[in-house]
């Protein structure tokens, strides 16, 4: 696992055996508002995403947590009527800057979706997709190396090593989701966004993914949207609670779950709203 630790543009890499260094900020949202046409979905959110930590975004359906997540790699751009205001930075660089290449941004901020969405290609081709389009590999051997190491990191390699040429769509749901994680980390992103990655999976597959998230934290900064508060408590170090498009409360996960400051947060965690 320690073999791959090349976070581009970062000066600080946490290794498991090192003394814990105070977290640095990977991404930062300042006064982020998102509009879908005339409807405002997000109201002035300020949130810092800390490097090599898992930040979970929780809140009832329609609270804007997925919207915020999708604005972190500008996936909202694919929706015509969507407009983002405020400032979001990655390593201090405004990602909504006109001169920024969105294609490059998405290579640096990877994403895993709610429903596993492997391409209708072989397992190998699925993982090789990103490195190939970004010109990260030039020879077959390099491609193979990156595919194998990505699959290893996603904890899938042992299960699929004999059938790399079979279609990725033939895997089970949990395996498909790990394939999508392997695909996302193959481009060596700094940040990995996960939009309810376990909501379509059974409890066993979910447990495997959660374990995986914990391991991936060593090399990636992770932001996860989840409906399950237990999951947020299990996997994340930082939690942000959204309600009705507003960021209500954020902080260390333990504090949020044991000692929430805000009444709404408390209500949600106790299961009274949502």
């Amino acid at each position: 696992m320690n073999a791959m630790t090349e976070n581009k543009g970062s000066t600080l890499v946490a290794k498991p055996d090192q003394v814990v260094i105070p977290p640095t900020v990977a991404m930062k949202g300042e006064d982020v508002s998102v509009f879908y046409g005339a409807k405002q979905a997000l109201f002035g959110v300020n949130l810092e995403i800390e490097r090599n930590r898992v930040t979970s975004l929780i809140g009832p359906s329609g609270c804007g947590k997925s919207t915020f997540l999708r604005s972190l790699n500008r996936m909202n751009d694919t929706i015509d009527i969507c407009r983002v205001t405020g400032r979001i930075t990655l390593d201090g660089e405004d990602i909504y800057d006109k001169n920024l290449d969105v294609v490059e941004l998405r290579a640096r901020v990877g994403m895993v979706f709610q429903k596993p969405n492997p391409f209708p290609k072989s397992i190998f081709e699925n993982v090789a997709y990103g490195p190939k389009i970004h010109g990260m590999v030039s020879t077959k051997a390099e491609t193979e190396e990156i595919v194998v190491s990505s699959l290893r990191k996603a904890g899938l390699f042992e299960e699929v090593k004999d059938r790399l040429n079979e279609p990725g769509t033939g895997l089970s749901g949990g395996q498909q989701q790990r394939l999508c994680i392997a695909r996302a980390i193959a481009t060596k992103p700094e940040v990995l966004l996960m939009d309810e990655p376990c909501s379509a999976l059974d409890p066993i597959a979910t447990a495997i993914i959660e374990e995986l998230i914990d391991e991936l934290r060593e090399n990636f900064t992770i932001v996860i949207v989840t409906h399950s508060m237990q999951q947020a408590a299990r996997v994340s170090q930082k939690t942000a609670f959204f309600h009705l498009g507003k960021l209500i409360e954020e902080g260390v996960t333990e504090d949020i779950f044991t000692n929430p400051v805000n009444k709404q947060t408390q209500d949600y965690i106790m299961g009274r709203i949502g």
Partner: peptide, 26 residues
């Protein structure tokens, strides 16, 4: 499915790459 398109775009593929490498084959 839209998820294919989003998956490819989220990998940092351009629209043309998404079209030729994912959508058209599918």
């Amino acid at each position: 499915p839209r998820s294919m398109r989003d998956g490819s775009l989220a990998m940092g593929a351009t629209r043309a790459e998404t079209m030729t490498k994912v959508l058209l084959p599918a």
